[in-house]
């Protein structure tokens, strides 16, 4: 816990001049904002531990205000607000599995899978036969997210997207 927010330690470096005060130079991610900051502590200083767990949860539905998730093992349900959802709303489709961070039992951070497969709902027809992919065009996905896709991609096709960069990866054929 740091300034009232739960944080995770990314890096913790022990720094000590041979005959002097020892320090820990720590890189911390604020789990509420995702922001990374650096801090220096005297070695041996203590901070309050945060009650934080990470779970793999299945996305169920959105009721207009909250996004609902379920633990597929215990069937326990959780609801996340827009703050916790952040960018994840752009990529989630019902039944997708996500990494959800709980603080004191409530979701504070929802991370979508690194790759999602989504259907194109809107895009310009483009030129038939152009498979070069040069230039590209915007396409709207079933979740409402807009990504740049190659010109040959058509409405109704499914594509794989990297949610970390928001970039098109490839076309996915239905089996």
């Amino acid at each position: 816990m740091l300034d009232g927010d739960p944080c995770s330690i990314i890096e913790n470096e022990f720094v000590k001049p041979g005959k002097g005060q020892a320090f820990n130079r720590v890189k911390i991610r604020n789990l509420k904002t995702g922001r990374v900051l650096e801090k220096t502590f005297k070695s041996g200083e203590t901070v309050e531990a945060a009650d934080v767990v990470e779970l793999q949860l299945q996305y169920l539905y959105n009721d207009g205000e909250f996004w609902h998730f379920m633990d597929p093992e215990t069937f326990e349900q959780y609801q996340a607000d827009a703050n916790a959802m952040g960018e994840a709303t752009k990529w989630l489709k019902e039944q997708d599995m996500c990494t959800v961070t709980l603080w004191n039992g409530s979701p504070i951070l929802v991370e979508p899978p690194n790759f999602v497969v989504l259907e194109i709902t809107e895009t310009d027809p483009g030129l038939k036969g152009d498979t070069s992919g040069g230039g590209g065009k915007p396409a709207t996905l079933e979740t409402g997210a807009v990504v740049r896709v190659p010109l040959f991609i058509q409405i109704g096709e499914k594509i794989k997207v990297d949610t970390r960069s928001g970039e098109y990866v490839n076309r996915v054929k239905d089996d």
Partner: peptide, 22 residues
Amino acid sequence: LPGAESIALDGVDGWLDLLLSH
């Protein structure tokens, strides 16, 4: 120096150590 505003160090030497090591 990250965290300098909130760290509690005793005396001149603690601060000199921080400034030297960081």
